[in-house]
Amino acid sequence: MSTTLATYIALPGNAAEAFEHWHEVFGGDLDLVRYGDMQLEGMPFEPNPQHVAHAVLTTPGGQVAGGDAMEDGNDYPLRGTAYSLLYSVETPDDARDLIQKLTNGGGSVGMPFEKAPWGEWYGTVFDRFGVMWSFSAPADDQQ
């Protein structure tokens, strides 16, 4: 196994729905394991068997991993600008296509996808789960 780095997102009980949606939008390979698919003997807590223990979506651009958050009493909001997933694509049209798929799936534009002051294209979308996706593409004259 090679060394990799992936973003990990703990979702509030809807990880299966989120990862299946992202798989539809971005393509790639999805590996999703629910607690009910595992041997639970020796677990320090009793998880909901329908919740996702671990999921990995491997896309042409990289990996996103995650699962359902443990019920520890913490309520960490997903929607916000403290973080985002940056997806860099080859052309502005590639980004527009992904943005359209996310908004068609119930998301909303956070920042319009347009030419940024630094010369490339950039914009953000909050998907229907509250996750902020940032998109970047080279300027038309850089292709």
Rank of each mutant, 00 (worst) to 15 (best):
1 M>F: 10
2 S>R: 13
2 S>N: 15
4 T>D: 11
4 T>R: 10
5 L>W: 12
7 T>Q: 13
7 T>A: 15
7 T>D: 06
8 Y>P: 12
9 I>Y: 02
9 I>R: 04
10 A>E: 11
11 L>D: 01
11 L>S: 09
11 L>G: 05
14 N>H: 05
15 A>Q: 00
15 A>F: 00
18 A>R: 10
20 E>S: 11
21 H>S: 11
22 W>H: 01
22 W>Y: 11
23 H>G: 13
23 H>L: 04
23 H>R: 07
23 H>K: 06
25 V>R: 02
29 D>W: 14
30 L>N: 02
33 V>P: 06
34 R>D: 11
37 D>A: 05
38 M>D: 08
40 L>F: 03
40 L>S: 06
41 E>M: 04
41 E>T: 05
42 G>T: 03
43 M>K: 12
44 P>H: 14
50 Q>V: 04
51 H>F: 10
53 A>F: 10
53 A>D: 15
53 A>G: 14
57 L>P: 02
59 T>N: 13
60 P>K: 03
62 G>P: 12
63 Q>H: 10
64 V>D: 07
66 G>D: 07
68 D>N: 01
70 M>Y: 14
73 G>T: 06
76 Y>P: 10
76 Y>F: 12
77 P>W: 01
78 L>N: 04
79 R>L: 07
80 G>E: 12
80 G>V: 04
81 T>C: 12
86 L>R: 14
88 S>I: 12
88 S>E: 11
88 S>D: 13
91 T>Q: 01
93 D>E: 05
98 L>F: 08
99 I>M: 01
100 Q>F: 06
102 L>D: 07
102 L>V: 08
102 L>S: 07
103 T>L: 02
104 N>D: 01
105 G>N: 03
107 G>R: 04
109 V>N: 09
110 G>R: 14
112 P>E: 06
118 W>G: 08
121 W>H: 12
122 Y>M: 03
123 G>Q: 05
126 F>V: 12
126 F>R: 08
127 D>P: 15
128 R>D: 00
128 R>I: 14
129 F>D: 00
131 V>F: 00
133 W>I: 01
133 W>Q: 01
134 S>F: 10
134 S>W: 05
139 A>N: 01
140 D>Q: 03
141 D>A: 07
141 D>P: 04
141 D>K: 07
